[in-house]
């Protein structure tokens, strides 16, 4: 009845080793993401939600050995033991990622356009001209005005919100099946946050991709995802439909997180 999962994660563990000490930051979690489904991962910083994303992408920070245990299957294909070149074909092409800080996530010495072009040429095998046309199309799609002109600008000529739009354009450029957004709005102004979330929602619908939205903020999750996993100290402590989690959380930690979200209704509408 239900579609086979796009991503199937079983008993995922992630361990950072520094010298002789090992820290297990993900303690054996399991979850599925169905094609086109939007799933939220909520938890305070350090709960292992970002490391889970990095483990799926197999992207450890430079110089930090990250050992991943358990199983991660993308369309039935095991990713944990996939050779690196094959993994490079998955990254960006099948599973793409948007990071937290747009100010430092773009290469300062390359034009915006060139940073979308190189992705398109890598995965799409497009010619220079075709990549260029598609780049301008993509910049327009994420709401950059005068995309043909702005493509030749450098990142420092863009605001934070605009840069995150560019990074989203990069992420969706090869029409991935799954977009992982790791705290995509945390570094942005509140007004811009809403715009970026709306953009993600629209792109998800238009491109039919699944979305894994990682955040510490329940306010970001609302209206964005169908299901939520609440994480704490490397474990998933509660899973449920978004509406259920909001109205009737079962785990005390979830209630505590929900209570931390400021509400307009507490002052305004009464």
């Amino acid at each position: 009845m239900t579609a086979p999962p796009l991503l199937q994660v079983r008993d995922l563990t992630a361990t950072f080793t520094r010298g002789s000490s090992a820290t297990r930051v993900v303690q054996g979690i399991s979850f599925d993401i169905a094609p086109g489904e939007a799933v939220g991962f909520v938890g305070e910083s350090g709960c292992g939600k970002s490391v889970t994303a990095r483990a799926i992408m197999r992207l450890a920070p430079e110089g930090t050995p990250l050992t991943v245990g358990g199983s991660i299957r993308y369309r039935g294909q095991e990713l944990t033991d996939l050779p690196e070149p094959a993994m490079r074909d998955i990254r960006g092409r099948r599973i793409a990622m948007v990071f937290q800080d747009p100010m430092s996530s773009l290469n300062p010495v390359m034009t915006i356009g060139a940073q979308i072009d190189d992705m398109l040429r890598r995965h799409g095998g497009l010619s220079r001209q075709a990549a260029r046309r598609r780049t301008i199309e993509l910049l327009g799609l994420v709401g950059i005005r005068d995309p043909a002109l702005r493509a030749d600008d450098h990142p420092h000529q863009f605001s934070g919100g605009m840069r995150q739009r560019v990074l989203i354009a990069i992420a969706v450029s090869c029409q991935p099946d799954l977009l992982i957004a790791d705290e995509p709005t945390t570094a942005l102004d509140v007004t811009v946050q809403a715009q970026i979330l709306r953009l993600l929602l629209r792109l998800r619908r238009e491109l039919g991709m699944a979305l894994m939205l990682i955040t510490h903020d329940f306010g970001v999750i609302a209206g964005m995802v169908e299901r939520v996993h609440v994480m704490r100290e490397g474990n998933i402590v509660e899973t449920g439909a978004t509406d259920t989690i909001f109205t009737a959380p079962t785990h005390p930690y979830t209630s505590a997180l929900l209570a931390a979200v400021p509400r307009l209704s507490e002052r305004g509408t009464a």
Binding site: E62, R91, G92, S105, N107, D118, H123
Partner: peptide, 21 residues
């Protein structure tokens, strides 16, 4: 150690491209 290198890796770019560009 810059974020944009991590982004480049997340894009699935080849080692050579990341090294040079």
């Amino acid at each position: 150690s810059q974020d944009y290198v991590m982004v480049a890796r997340a894009k699935g770019l080849r080692r050579r491209t990341i090294l040079v560009h």
